[in-house]
Structures are given as structure tokens and as C-alpha cells.
Amino acid sequence: MNTLFPIFLKLEQLQVLIVGGGYVGLEKLTAVLANAPQTDVTLVAPEIRAEIHALAQQHPHVKLVIDVYNPSFLEEKDLVIVGTNDKSVNRQIQEDCKAKRLLVNVADTPDLCDFYLSSVVKKGDLKIAISTNGKSPTFAKRFREVLEEILPDTLQETLDNLQQIRNKLKGDFQEKMDKLNEITKVMK
């Protein structure tokens, strides 16, 4: 049973640390910036891929630090994503995060994760996160591709119209909910 609690974070209000400058670090940094391009991210690694350097040049809120991990990098951070190819370093970072009560994701190691990065479908303001409880990121990716294909590109117009209707509704909370439920019933 999947007991994960789905949540959408306002990453642009947080300080994020990514440890790892290889392919996994690139994947995680790309995911963060695709969803919240103004996020303050510090990426630490002894070696950093050229693609990460290119991304950092396009995003002034990304700071690259060419260095080995040190617990001092956790200072003033809110969220940590780990993607090194050294399992002992990954475990040490996870333990350091636990000691500081920081949420951490260790790539491809569900037992060391406080949260998982989901596969995300985006259509304008609509964002759907897909989780397989860490069992198959590949399935989540394929399912995302299916949803992206079947969801119409006109969804943003629908959302904008519903927001206008919602803003004009009068009455108490229950009356507004009843009206919005009536309007959206056609989606069944």
C-alpha cells in the first residue's frame, strides 16, 4: 500500500542542496529547475558535468561548488537531494540530514529517502505528480508520457475560465463548492 503523502512544495522559497555532479545530479537539477526555475540551488561535487555548468549559466540562482561533500554544506538548507556514485557518501549525507532534521532524497535508494521525486505532467497551471512508491520510476515516466499525450493543450483555458467563475461566485463555502461541482460534473 502506498502511504506517501502527496505534496507540492514552493521550492522557490527554499534553499536546496544537490550533492553529485554526474548524470544523476544533472537529472535532479533539471527536474528542480523545470518545475521551479528561480529556486536557490547549491550543487556540490568534486567533478561537475559540462551540462550542469551550462544549466547554471542559464539560472543565476544555481551555485556550483567544486568540492567533496562536507556536513557544513547542510547549513541553512531546507531540502537535500543526493546523487553521488559512492554509497557510503550517500549514507553519510542521509545520516547528517537526519541529525539536522532535513528532508533528504537519495537517488535510487528508497530506504534512505524521506521523499521521492515524482514524474510530473504539466499542462499550463495543471500539474500532476505520479508516484510508484519508489518501485518503478520507469513506469511513472511512461505513464507521464501517456497522460501528456491524452490531456488536451486547451486545459489552461479551462482552468482560467473556472478561476473566473470561482472568483465571481457568491455565498458561503458550501454554496460555492456545490456550484463548482455542478459546473465540473461534465468532466466525468
Rank of each mutant, 00 (worst) to 15 (best):
I130Q: 11
Q156M: 08
D86Y: 13
A140D: 06
K100Y: 05
A99S: 06
Q174M: 10
Q58K: 15
Q94E: 13
A129H: 03
K77S: 02
F73C: 05
V121I: 15
K170Y: 00
T132K: 07
P46H: 10
P46K: 11
G134D: 01
N85G: 07
V19W: 01
D125P: 11
N133M: 08
K100T: 06
A36W: 06
V146M: 05
L74G: 08
A36H: 13
V44F: 08
Q174W: 07
L126V: 09
E175N: 12
A36L: 02
G124E: 09
L155F: 11
H53D: 07
V186A: 10
F143E: 03
E145R: 12
V62R: 09
V104E: 03
E145F: 02
N85Q: 07
E148Y: 08
E182Q: 13
K77T: 09
H61M: 14
T132A: 07
R91C: 00
S131D: 02
Q174E: 15
G22M: 06
L26Y: 15
V106L: 03
I48F: 06
V82H: 02
L162F: 10
Q13N: 14
A34H: 02
L126P: 09
D67N: 15
G134T: 03
I81E: 05
Q13D: 13
P6M: 05
E148R: 09
L147V: 01
L151P: 08
P60K: 15
Q57W: 00
K127F: 07
Q92N: 11
K28C: 03
D111S: 15
D114V: 08
M1N: 03
E47A: 14
E47G: 10
I128M: 14
D111G: 11
K100C: 09
L117C: 14
V82K: 04
Q13F: 01
K141Q: 12
V120D: 02
G83S: 08
E175H: 14
E12Y: 03
F8L: 06
L126M: 15
L112T: 06
R144E: 01
N167K: 13
T138S: 13
L126K: 13
S88M: 13
